[in-house]
Design a protein around this nucleic acid. Structure first.
Length: 269
DNA sequence: ATGCCAGCATGTTGCTGA
């Protein structure tokens, strides 16, 4: 079972990259962010043709999230529960897992809950946008607490717009005044993770230069001036089943790429 | 200190992003 997150920065601009990658990486479940289009403008048929159920929560021009799944998924939330929001940043559903190894138990779950999230950027500091970022974080943390109480396999995947640690940036000093690397933003992320989640990439590697975003500007990609802001947070019921995790950075070298690349983890499910 | 680059809107420039 391969689960991935990919901020495409416009699904219509990135459809060729996405379909190529779906065919080579063959993920089971993909959370997409920054669709930048309404549900009716989403290129649904092209992705369904590759064997995916497509569930979108779109918005014109900005934001927009989706979940693609090779297995049946029932959407439970479009929009973060308990958080009034005009921006499309959250989608959550329950995936029915293919059974075949005996009866469903805690050690042999029949479902996987997946949440796709696109956190606010929050710049500039001291603005309403920064307050919105922190409020969104607080609301997700409250909701995540409820989800953990279900004791289900759960993955919260997406663009968190948080650089967790200095080693998650090539030049951390360049991000001192940025909402992505503020002590408050990092503390909010730690608070969420400390509820009982595990960062899939950090659970499987302590090497540096594991980045998921490179700015389009100033030759950031050529200089490997990247940051790691796209994360997969795993509930305890999933961590036990984590096999490996990775980042498909080669997509950043393609023609007309997104500024983010896919991050994924493989589970024994 | 600002722009760099990219995408979108009903556009030939301004905004948002990170």
């Amino acid at each position: 079972m391969l689960i991935a997150t990919f901020n495409v920065n416009s699904i219509r601009q990135r459809l060729p990259h996405l379909t190529r990658w779906l065919q080579t990486r063959a993920p089971d479940i993909v959370c997409l962010q920054e669709l930048k289009c309404l549900d009716e403008a989403f290129p649904r048929e092209e992705i369904e043709a590759l064997g995916y159920q497509v569930e979108t929560h779109g918005q014109k021009t900005f934001n927009g999230v989706a979940i693609l799944s090779r297995h049946g998924i029932a959407i439970e939330h479009r929009g973060l529960p308990g958080f009034e929001d005009e921006q499309a940043r959250y989608i959550e559903g329950v995936v029915s897992l293919p059974q075949g190894q005996g009866p469903a138990t805690t050690k042999n779950p029949s479902v996987l809950r997946i949440a796709g999230v696109y956190f606010p950027n929050g710049n500039p500091l001291g603005s309403e946008k920064f307050a919105y970022k922190r409020n969104f974080m607080a609301a997700l943390t409250r909701h995540a607490k409820d989800l953990l109480a279900l004791e289900e396999p759960l993955v919260i995947a997406g663009d968190y717009n948080v650089i967790p640690q200095p080693e998650d940036a090539r030049f951390p000093e360049n991000w001192r005044g940025d909402a992505l690397f503020q002590p408050e933003s990092r503390a909010d992320f730690r608070k969420l993770a400390a509820l009982g989640f595990t960062d899939a990439i950090r659970a499987t590697s302590d090497s540096d230069r594991l980045y998921s975003f490179w700015d389009y500007q100033a030759g950031a990609w050529q200089r490997d001036n990247g940051i790691r802001i796209d994360h997969l947070l795993l509930s305890p019921q999933v961590v036990d089943r984590l096999v490996e995790a990775g980042i498909d950075r080669e997509l950043r070298a393609e023609e007309k790429p997104s500024d983010h690349v896919p991050v994924w983890c493989r589970l024994r499910l």
